[in-house]
Design a binder for these strands. Structure first.
Length: 704
DNA sequence: GTTCTAGAAC
DNA sequence: GTTCTAGAAC
């Protein structure tokens, strides 16, 4: 999308100069409307009022009429308005567009047309959403709403429409509106609109739900759409499977494996490992598949396993099918599927859906590079029997349109003498490795499913009990256990990455969690595409969480450059969200978000820490000063500096660590930690002026 | 990042 | 006796 700052006219027509703007946000839940509003209101010098239907009812569901009433009053006061509700169809928007009939205003639309899957995952992952649309219900609601989606047109009465299809578009639209002062105007017209209006939610889900598909599909499979991924490193010897979360509601009941009431059934679609190119004995392989499936089928919650045929003759499928039937394996939890699938490549993509033509070709083309990059960053070299999970980048259509959330790579044993590491005829070892391969494949799937369930549980808990009682593991016992766990880490060698600093083995924990959060289900409290959130193992205050960047090579503040602004903003927003969650639980807390100038732990992490510093883990001068001297860089300042100068200022001098101990409120000096701690426990002085500025401190909203 | 230790300072 | 510091080990 192209929106240039230059397009902001500073010398608009005279009568436009002070004309307020009504910005109508158009987008599904989770598309980022509120974030957009918050950002614009934070940075713009125009007076904005956010009209949000979720909050307007003060706890109760708000109405459109209330939104219109507030809009009218605010417009009379000369304010600019952000209409923060879905506004997905023309009818929903009309009343707000008509505000221009009674006021001298321009009506703008910001269309946040982000991938459905992304919106859903944000809804599922977020806490404290004002409309209470969280957890499992989100998928159903978002999909239902998107069915009604109707792109706004200029002839509805808009002066300007901005279309955003990805996070970059959103950022540039936020920047455009954020930099709008009272005397600037924006050019009229439609910006960033994509011509093709591709439908959401097609593909794998429907494919998986077609009962009559298999026979037709089998006959289709000779079409010559197979592709060879030229970037395949070495022999194409890794098998790749895909795990997806169906997200559409699936009203069709003819589905043989429809599990009924779930909005999304986590599904692992996997090929038979090693039986094609690696020439593993099919009889033996089928035995191992069924045996391992049997072990896992009850461990994967509401998930299901689908063996998808890769070979042209589907002997393996019939063998497996028969064996599974003999063992009475629940056919809703495990079944086979013959599909038109190309051979696997390192890119991990294949045609999973029969029919559909262009859609699949597009998926292959478009998702390939993204997935390939993500894979190379994370997977490195894989040893036989081992699996690794790669979350699919949200930029991939396979993610956005098909609902595939992860790709699990697994390498099986090779029995083919023409391929490397051939086991000759050593089936004793071969069977062991193949078994291992399925174990780790299903194991990885299991942990994804559990993680999802845990998140839903977590958020449902929040919903059901008001805002109280979210289970957290930050008591002493858990910390000790985590400590042990962390100590067990051994530094892994880098795969083609340059190392900036020699981090000790103990400094790797955050990095490991950031790279494989699904393996650390107990430690993380939120997993997003770009960040993970976890409780600090040694909290230095009542509430202390870390928002860790999931970007390789971004190890500390010293690595941060201009290109990292989006991730810094994401980290800030996520941190903000958690602070707000904690503030709802305890209004007396005050939060500060920031980075250590020279952190001890590898991987850029944002501290979200309450300012009570009431913790048994706060033991020495360094602990105190790392959060209460200039060594601690407020997130708002870091973002500001990076925006203006391309990099943040670092106060990493050791002198900050040895500074005298001063109260963070009244600034009084104290001779040692115990005395300081007894003082801060009772000091009620207001915070110093510099902390009260620029939103460095976060308080609970003051009651009026 | 933490824990542990020993010795100094209070 | 308690606190601080520094170094070593993890």
């Amino acid at each position: 999308m192209e929106i240039d700052d230059e397009m902001i006219k500073s010398k608009g027509e005279e009568e436009d100069k002070k004309k307020p703007i009504v910005v109508i946000l158009v987008g599904a839940p989770g598309s980022g409307k509120s974030t957009f509003c918050d950002h614009v209101m934070r940075v713009s010098t125009r007076p904005w009022v956010r009209v949000c239907q979720d909050t307007i009812g003060n706890g109760k569901a708000g109405t459109k009429a209330q939104c219109l009433a507030i809009s009218n009053t605010s417009l009379k006061e000369g304010k600019n308005i952000l209409i923060d509700r879905c506004n997905l169809d023309k009818e929903q928007r009309a009343d707000f567009v008509n505000l221009k009939n009674s006021h001298q205003v321009d009506i703008h639309a910001i269309v946040l047309d982000l991938p459905a899957k992304l919106c859903i995952s944000r809804c599922v992952n977020r806490t404290g959403h004002e409309g209470n649309l969280q957890g499992g219900r989100a998928a159903a609601v978002v999909n239902r709403m998107l069915q009604k989606k109707e792109s706004p047109k200029i002839n509805e009465g808009f002066t300007r429409i901005t279309f955003c299809y990805n996070e970059n578009d959103v950022q540039s639209a936020m920047d455009t509106y954020g930099s709008l002062s009272s005397i600037n105007t924006l050019p009229s017209g439609c910006f960033g609109e994509k011509k093709s209006d591709s439908k959401v939610q097609v593909g794998i889900m429907k494919f998986l739900k077609r009962v009559d598909a298999p026979s037709k599909l089998a006959s289709n499979k000779t079409d010559k759409t197979e592709k060879t991924d030229k970037t395949t490193p070495g022999p194409s010897n890794d098998n790749t499977t895909q795990e997806n979360h169906p997200v559409n509601e699936g009203k069709e009941k003819k589905i043989p494996f429809e599990s009924g009431t779930h909005d999304g059934v986590p599904t692992l679609a996997f090929p038979s490992i090693s039986t094609s190119d690696f020439q593993f004995n099919i009889e033996k392989a089928s035995e191992i598949i069924v045996e391992t499936v049997e072990e896992f089928v009850n461990k994967i919650g509401n998930g299901r396993l689908v063996l998808v045929d890769l070979s042209h003759g589907s002997k393996i499928l019939s063998l497996v099918k028969t064996k599974a039937a003999k063992k009475n394996i629940d056919s809703k939890k495990f079944f086979t599927f013959v599909g038109d699938i190309t051979k696997l490549h390192s890119g991990g993509l294949k045609r999973l859906k029969p029919g559909g033509g262009g859609v699949n070709a597009a998926i292959f083309d478009a998702a390939g590079p993204d997935l390939d990059t993500a894979t190379k960053q994370r997977a490195g070299s894989l040893t036989p029997g081992k699996a690794i999970t790669i979350p699919l980048p949200s930029t991939s259509p396979l993610f956005s349109k098909e609902g595939v959330t992860h790709v699990i790579h697994v390498l099986g044993p090779n029995m083919n003498p023409k391929r490397p590491n051939c086991l000759k005829d050593d089936y004793q070892k071969g069977c062991k490795v193949l078994k291992e391969a399925y174990m780790s494949l299903f194991g990885n799937f299991e942990s994804i499913v559990r993680n999802q369930e845990k998140l839903c549980e977590h958020f449902d808990g929040v919903l059901n009990s008001g805002v109280e009682k979210v289970r957290r593991e930050d008591d002493g016992i858990c910390s000790t256990e985590k400590n042990k766990k962390f100590k067990g880490f051994v530094e892994e060698k880098e795969i083609g990455g340059k190392v900036n600093k020699d981090w000790g083995s103990w400094a790797q924990a955050l990095y490991k969690i950031a790279m494989n959060p699904e393996k650390h289900g107990n430690d993380v409290i939120e997993i997003l595409d770009d960040v993970v959130v976890l409780n600090d193992v040694y909290p230095k205050a009542q509430k202390h969480v870390l928002v860790v960047a999931r970007v390789k090579g971004l190890e500390s503040l010293s690595d941060v450059g201009e290109e990292h602004l989006p991730i810094l903003r994401t980290m800030h927003d996520v941190g903000l969200k958690w602070a707000q969650t904690f503030l709802k639980e305890n209004e007396s807390l005050v939060f500060r978000l920031g980075y250590h100038s020279a952190p001890s732990m590898r991987q850029l992490h944002l501290h979200v820490i309450s300012q009570d510093f009431d913790s048994k883990h706060l033991k020495n001068k360094k602990h105190w000063n790392s959060f209460n001297s200039s060594f601690f860089r407020d997130s708002v300042d870091v973002i500001e500096e990076v925006r203006e100068e391309g990099k943040p200022k670092l106060n990493d001098d050791e002198k900050f660590m040895s500074m005298e101990l001063r109260c963070n409120r009244c600034r009084s000096a104290h001779p040692n930690i115990p005395r300081l701690k007894s003082h801060i426990a009772i000091c009620k002085s207001p915070f110093p002026e510099n902390l009260l500025q620029n939103g460095r401190l976060l308080h609970a909203p003051t009651k009026v």
